[in-house]
Amino acid sequence: NRRVIAMPSVRKYAREKGVDIRLVQGTGKNGRVLKEDIDAFLAGGAKP
């Protein structure tokens, strides 16, 4: 169970979209999950 780095607003956005943030690959600094990562996940998967 890895620790997810994300701003509270991004965590809320993921919850609102029904996304398990632990499944999203973060592309920000130090692997931080960004809102754009949530959108990319919803569009068909995590960014490479």
Rank of each mutant, 00 (worst) to 15 (best):
A46K: 04
G45W: 07
V19F: 12
D20V: 04
D20A: 05
G18I: 06
E36A: 11
K12I: 15
T27D: 03
Q25A: 13
P8N: 11
D20H: 05
T27I: 01
S9N: 06
L42E: 07
L34P: 00
V10P: 05
N1D: 09
V24H: 06
Q25D: 15
P8F: 04
F41Y: 04
N1V: 03
D37M: 00
M7Y: 07
G18S: 11
D39P: 01
G31H: 01
G31C: 09
R3A: 06
R22H: 13
R3M: 09
L23D: 15
I38A: 01
R32T: 10
I21N: 03
N1F: 03
G45C: 12
I38C: 04
A40Y: 11
S9V: 15
R15K: 15
P8R: 13
I5W: 11
E16S: 06
V10I: 14
G31S: 09
R2K: 14
A46G: 11
E36R: 10
L23G: 11
G28Q: 10
P8M: 11
A40S: 13
E16I: 03
N30C: 03
I38K: 00
L23Q: 09
R3P: 05
G18A: 09
D39N: 01
K47M: 05
E16N: 10
A14T: 00
A43Y: 07
D37E: 00
G18P: 02
K12C: 06
A6T: 13
A46S: 10
R22D: 03
G44Y: 03
K35H: 14
D39M: 04
V19C: 13
F41W: 12
A43W: 05
G44F: 14
G26M: 02
N1A: 00
R3W: 05
A6H: 08
M7V: 02
K12W: 06
K35S: 08
S9G: 14
R11A: 14
V4R: 05
A46P: 13
I21K: 02
V33C: 04
N30S: 10
T27L: 04
A40P: 04
R11E: 12
Y13V: 04
V4P: 09
N1T: 03
R3F: 15
R15S: 14
L34E: 13
V33N: 01
G26F: 02
E36W: 05
E16H: 01
S9W: 13
S9I: 14
K47W: 04
G45F: 03
P48K: 02
R2W: 06
A43D: 11
K12E: 07
D39C: 07
R15C: 10
Q25I: 04
E36N: 13
R22I: 15
S9T: 12
I38F: 00
A14S: 06
A14C: 03
K17G: 08
Y13K: 04
P8H: 14
D39R: 02
E16G: 10
N30W: 08
Y13S: 03
K29H: 02
I5H: 02
L42T: 10
D39G: 06
S9C: 10
T27E: 08
R2F: 04
E36T: 08
V24E: 00
V10M: 04
Y13M: 12
I5M: 13
N30G: 09
I5K: 05
L42C: 13
K47S: 13
V10S: 03
R2A: 00
K29Y: 01
V19G: 01
R15D: 10
G44W: 08
V19N: 01
G31R: 06
E16C: 00
S9P: 14
Q25W: 10
G31E: 08
Y13D: 06
V24S: 03
T27W: 02
A46V: 11
K47H: 12
R22A: 14
I21Q: 01
G45Q: 12
K17P: 00
P8T: 11
T27M: 06
V4W: 05
K35L: 07
V10A: 07
R2N: 09
E16M: 00
V33W: 01
D39A: 08
Y13Q: 05
F41L: 07
D37Q: 00
V4G: 05
G28T: 03
L34A: 09
N30A: 08
D39F: 01
A6Q: 08
E16Q: 05
R22P: 10
V33T: 09
R2D: 12
A14R: 02
I5S: 13
D37S: 01
I38H: 00
G18V: 04
A43M: 02
I38M: 01
F41K: 11
K35Q: 11
N30T: 03
R32Q: 08
T27C: 05
P8Y: 13
G44Q: 13
A6D: 14
G28W: 01
F41D: 08
G28V: 05
V24D: 00
L23Y: 14
L42A: 07
N30H: 08
I38N: 00
K35R: 08
D20M: 03
L34W: 08
G31M: 02
K17A: 09
E16D: 15
T27V: 03
L23S: 09
V10G: 01
G31K: 04
V10D: 04
I38D: 00
